[in-house]
């Protein structure tokens, strides 16, 4: 059954490939367009909803940076929240103590988080798999302990008041800043993944021995990946600090890492865009739950836990894999049927 109704349907595999690329680009631009106009669509015009949108975009960007490590080199950075906090505290302290503009501070924070990520990576990524994940967790716990125990510098659990990024407490400008940061994170990390470096990452993630046999130095690439992901974590942490205006050691809690991890895996490991897209509906739903059932603390985390369990057991590819199968279905529909040759009798 040929499908002549489809205009400019692909005729060759290369055409089909280009068609797919066009389709994906259109879908992503559509999603980005929705994200841009969303704050003007009721009910998202309210300050509450806009604050949630900022939180959603921040979570999305963090999940992308997390997926860059977890989904490609297959190392789960269990100390992720500590790198976020490290960037936040660096930028915050620079602004408080030295009066450095937050716009510069967040990049310094990113650099420091990246550097600590580099050290942690060099230390732990010689170890593999679960050792690396657990060691990253320990490093995160140690960093959190340090922040908590140096109240002369960080004010410890009292919380550090940090100047805001913009001269306004209106949420809308912040939303566009973080949306921009999300796009930058997504684009930069996607470009890296598409390059030969990304090929090496995937090779290492799939089979370390085979990658090594093909002449890839695994440690170098693992450390590079880890440091880059940590740098983005620190950068986003800087935004966190200068948006909420207060920092406590609690930003580094393991449960924060698990939240980012859950979003990354529900969105789909190894896709980068999956976590970015799913973070929005997920975190808006979570915020609605949180306000509707304010008397039931922890309900939203029960939801995260359940979703993570279901995804891990039954849908390992997450939402991205589901989207991919829809995409394949569309591709099949658009592909012209092979011409049937009359069977010889």
């Amino acid at each position: 059954m040929a499908n002549p109704s489809v205009a400019n349907a692909p005729t060759s595999p290369i055409e089909a490939d280009r068609d797919a690329t066009r389709r994906h680009r259109a879908a992503l631009l559509l999603v980005l367009g929705i994200a841009i106009v969303l704050p003007f669509v009721p009910p998202f015009t309210g300050q509450d909803y806009q604050r949630w949108l900022v939180g959603a975009a921040l979570l999305a960007a963090m999940a992308v940076a997390f997926d860059f490590t977890a989904g490609y080199i297959n190392v789960v950075n269990f100390g992720f929240a500590a790198f976020v906090g490290l960037g936040g505290y660096t930028s915050g302290l620079l602004a408080v103590d030295l009066g450095v503009s937050p716009w510069i501070g967040i990049f310094v924070g990113a650099a420091l988080a990246g550097f600590v990520g580099l050290l942690t990576g060099m230390l732990t990524l010689r170890l593999r798999g679960i050792y690396a994940a657990v060691m990253a967790w320990f490093v995160g716990l140690a960093v959190m302990g340090l922040v908590r125990n140096l109240p002369d510098i960080t004010r410890g659990s009292l919380g550090l008041n940090v100047p805001l990024l913009l001269d306004t407490s209106d949420n809308l400008p912040y939303y566009y800043v973080i949306l921009g940061m999300l796009v930058v994170t997504l684009v930069v990390l996607t470009v890296v993944i598409r390059s030969y470096i990304g090929l090496a990452f995937r090779a290492i993630g799939q089979n370390l021995q085979a990658a090594r046999a093909s002449g890839i130095n695994p440690t170098r690439y693992l450390v590079l990946n880890f440091a880059l992901s940590s740098a983005f974590a620190g950068w986003l942490g800087g935004f966190y600090a200068h948006y909420y205006g207060i920092l406590t050691p609690d930003v580094m809690l393991t449960s924060r890492t698990v939240e980012v991890l859950a979003v990354a895996y529900i969105g789909g490991r190894g896709s980068l865009w999956g976590p970015a897209v799913i973070a929005f509906p997920l975190s808006i739903a979570v915020e609605l739950l949180r306000t509707q059932f304010a008397n039931l603390p922890g309900l939203y985390l029960v939801l995260y836990g359940l979703l993570l369990i279901v995804v891990m057991i039954y849908r390992p590819g997450g939402v991205a894999a589901a989207a991919r199968s829809v995409d394949e279905w569309i591709a099949r529909r658009r592909r012209p049927e092979p011409v049937e040759t009359p069977r010889a009798t």
Binding site: V258, Y265, L301, G305, L307, L308, I309, M312
Partner: peptide, 12 residues
């Protein structure tokens, strides 16, 4: 990761 989900679930 599965047990991480279980942990979050049970705690909450």
């Amino acid at each position: 990761l599965l047990t991480a989900g279980v942990s979050v679930l049970l705690v909450n």
